[in-house]
Amino acid sequence: MCLAIPGKIVELIAGPNLVGVVEVTGVRRKVQLGLLEDDMPKIGDWVLIHVGFAMSKISERDAAEQMRLLTALGEVEQVMEEVRGYGLEDSTDRAGPVSLNGKHHA
């Protein structure tokens, strides 16, 4: 739950809720941008995502470091599972792939 996932903003979606599309190592998913209301990211900016909400803007270099950190912590699998889950596209419409080795994460 405390995973902070780095993603690159590739699209901003117009509408009442502040929503954008991020790319995390090749996977594109919807994220909520409401917490960055005061300092809205632009296309091409990097953000740290927490439970589907962008929490802060970061530099590209820090984004790469964060991904490396998650790799070292053995959490990349969970990260990708989480990112694929954002937006409830089919894959999440079930109680998810919970592995029983204690390494799952949300």
């Binding site: 909520q32 439970v51 589907g52 909400f53 989480e82 937006g87 999440t92 919970v98």
Partner: peptide, 21 residues
């Protein structure tokens, strides 16, 4: 997870926004 096995409709969400979805 055990409650799910016993019939409760338990779903994993990765974001509160997805629970609303």
């Amino acid at each position: 997870l055990e409650h799910k096995a016993r019939g409760t409709d338990v779903r994993i969400v990765y974001s509160p926004a997805d629970a609303l979805e």
